[in-house]
């Protein structure tokens, strides 16, 4: 594809995703085009079931599109083998899930070091990096706590630290505050804002206006398609304390 350039970290062209067949066919995504430049924080908003999570799964190689293309750093990834996709997820993509998806039997620091171990780093290096990330998300004193002993906000901060474990090119976050109360949401907002400031490319799907307000660009979705794209002037210019007062 000649018009696909390396200036964008992540690109999608004509993405379509169907589930089921015949009369039971559901079109979750319908011809989505997307370009995400390096360092951008992109928020994708829309009601439940509009296809936000599906889009994120396709961008991260967790699912394959029914039609269309996904490009990551100039490389088409929607046709890659599972093994190659796993390698991409290991080194290039970080995932943050609404349900945190931490390993229940691992402590905070063990959860964070897991991607580094999967990437083949030495146990010592993996632990060192995990400790740094724990410090970055402000949970040093919770390093040896199991997820069951952490609050929702703390769990999500551990999940974000885990997503950063291998210094990914892009972090894909699926409703990162969907399971959190207001105070915990504020913690996560601060963390995402610091990532944006550090130049981390972020794609966040959410129906939380507070998250969307911190982004560089906002895309609205409905019925599997983009309906509106807005470049925000400066999400971080709004004090985070005020953001938490916004209505959802």
């Amino acid at each position: 594809m000649s018009d696909v350039t390396n200036t964008f970290v992540l690109q999608a062209r004509g993405l379509r995703m169907d589930y089921g067949q015949g009369e039971g066919l559901v079109r979750a995504l319908d011809g989505v085009d997307l370009q995400v430049p390096a360092g951008e924080t992109l928020a994708v908003m829309g009601p439940s079931g509009c296809g936000k999570s599906t889009l994120l799964h396709l961008l991260g190689g967790l699912e394959r599109p029914s039609e269309g293309e996904v490009w990551l750093q100039g490389r088409r990834i929607d046709q890659l083998s599972e093994k190659t996709l796993a390698g991409l997820r290991r080194h290039t993509i970080g995932f943050v899930f609404q349900a945190f998806h931490l390993m229940d039997e691992l402590t905070a620091v063990e959860n964070i070091e897991l991607p580094a171990l999967l990437a083949g780093r030495s146990p010592r290096a993996a632990r060192r990096r995990a400790t740094e990330l724990l410090e970055q998300v402000g949970l040093t004193e919770r390093a040896t706590h199991l997820p069951s002993a952490l609050s929702g906000g703390q769990r999500q901060r551990v999940a974000i630290a885990r997503a950063l474990g291998n210094d990914p090119l892009v972090v894909l976050a699926d409703e990162p505050t969907g399971n959190l109360d207001s105070a915990a949401t504020l913690d996560v907002l601060r963390l995402l804002d610091s990532l944006r400031s550090a130049g981390q490319t972020l794609v966040v799907v959410t129906h939380d206006a507070r998250i969307a307000a911190t982004a560089d660009r906002l895309i609205s979705m409905r019925d599997g398609a983009f309906v509106e794209a807005t470049r925000l002037t400066r999400g971080s210019s709004v004090p985070l304390g005020e953001l938490t007062q916004l209505e959802r």
């Binding site: 599972e82 796993a86 995932f95 390993m103 897991l114």
Partner: peptide
């Protein structure tokens, strides 16, 4: 989850 974090199906 392990696969989402980068483990291959074979692993």
């Amino acid at each position: 989850l392990t696969r989402a974090l980068g483990a291959t199906p074979r692993q």
